[in-house]
Design a protein around this nucleic acid. Structure first.
Length: 155
DNA sequence: GCCAACGTTGGC
DNA sequence: GCCAACGTTGGC
């Protein structure tokens, strides 16, 4: 099997945090309504590893680690009128949004804040630290990922 | 296909 | 609350 790819996915902890995922074990990464982010999910493979990033909070940063366990799942929230993710232009015959399922691996022993990430990496190395980046899902180079992993593990 | 207006994300 | 950086929409 090939070495897994690494990704980073953002979530607002008020809505869904690393602790929520720890409790749930697995979750559907639904509610993504950005084509670029969706297309990144379509490139994911089972076994890929994902950094869980807490966004829009104090402080923002990498809070944990998870693994892709299922692919190409139709996002059910696009059909739910009561959901904030309802998409009128999507149909069951031709769904517009899909997602992946992820599994909790571990919570960061040491939370890695965005300011720390900015010190460690530059824009070319890590898309996330790019000013004004709004993508909620981005790929992370293997070399960078391993460096981040070292920092969020104890020690 | 162009582009102006508008909306969203998310750090600060 | 501000604003940078895009994405989306819709008129033409």
């Amino acid at each position: 099997m090939n070495e897994p790819n690494y990704w980073l996915m953002k979530s607002e902890p008020d809505a869904y945090s690393i602790d929520t995922l720890k409790r749930d074990g697995v979750t559907l990464w639904d509610g993504i309504r950005n084509y670029q982010a969706r297309n990144f999910m379509r490139r994911m493979m089972i076994g890929d590893k994902v950094f869980f990033y807490h966004s829009n909070c104090k402080p923002p940063g990498i809070a944990g680690f998870m693994e892709v366990v299922d692919l190409n799942i139709i996002d059910p929230t696009q059909f739910q009128k009561e959901s904030g993710y309802y998409d009128q232009k999507s149909s069951k015959e031709n769904p517009r949004w899909d997602c992946v399922k992820v599994k909790y691996l571990f919570k960061a022993d040491k939370f890695l804040s965005l300011p720390e990430l900015k010190i460690l990496f530059n824009e070319e190395e890590l898309l996330l630290v790019k000013k004004g980046n709004r993508l909620s899902i981005i790929p992370v180079e293997t070399k960078i990922a391993k460096s981040i992993l070292e920092r969020i593990k104890q020690g």
